[in-house]
Amino acid sequence: MTVFVIRRLLQAALVMIIMSLLVFGGVFLVGDPVEMLVADDADQAERQAIIKSMGLDLPFYMQYLRFIGNALQGDMGNSFVFQEPAMELILERMPATFELAIAALLIAVVIGIPLGIYAGLKADSWMSKTIMTASILGFSVPTFWVGIMMILFFAVILGWLPSTGRGDTVELFGIPVSFLTLDGLQHLILPAVNLALFKLSMVIRLARAGTREVVHQDYIKFARAKGLSTGRIIGVHLFKNIMIPVVTVLGLEFGGLIAFSVVTETVFAWPGMGKLLIDSIGFLDRPVIVAYLLFVVGLFVFINLVVDVLYSVLDPRVRLQEVKS
């Protein structure tokens, strides 16, 4: 188990180094940060001073090491636009994005798993076919367009729900959240459903595929032969087995939700990290772009690591293999 975790940690570190090189290379070498920082009427001496202070006269690897050194201390530079540390900006927006992503994940799981199990158990029923057709649709619809359509119907035409922003927030353990106020909850519904749609389709498909595979296993028939109730067979024997792939994929997809919330946040003007990224790209606010990309990539690597470990906890067979190896 320890060997397994260490191996994964090393792999994660390697990925981080590669991604940081990519982002650093892309942002700092392709563009010219001096142009961004120096006033148009600055003279040559001022330019030199800034180049010196930013270390832009150093060779590439020195610049990179310096950048990494600062990044490890959480210093990603100051935002050109807000004149605040980029990392702080990101962390400030993070709760909003996480709240949205978690809400979406919950919607996907709570609705998706029962639908998927149903579609798997009664594959030929009219209901199941409808569910599966809807899930193909869920894979195909452009998230941003569905978001726009949701605004059109629920905000513009019906006027039921607000279409932009987070609404009222209250502090929970010092973190502002929307879901605890009525106004905030109303604001959360549309974006969360929008973000959930794609994952919902995926959960339905995974749960259905898992159900169809598991339901024909001998151990399900044996469970029936023990005289267990249908509820217990589905709720424990089937559910536990299909949850292994679902949890794995969902864990990995949580990072995807964070990344994809860029789109939903833009449509619904949700003040999270994603919207910050798009705004920063618009303003060419490089430190924030770099901070966001590295932060999300890091988050991703972390999630992958956690899911790997979690997976081995969930499935006793994997655990054993890892112990042996």
Binding site: D218, Y219, N241
Partner: peptide, 11 residues
């Protein structure tokens, strides 16, 4: 059942 490897729920 016939196959003992398959009759017990693995999880």
């Amino acid at each position: 059942f016939q196959d003992p490897m398959m009759t017990l729920n693995p999880v």
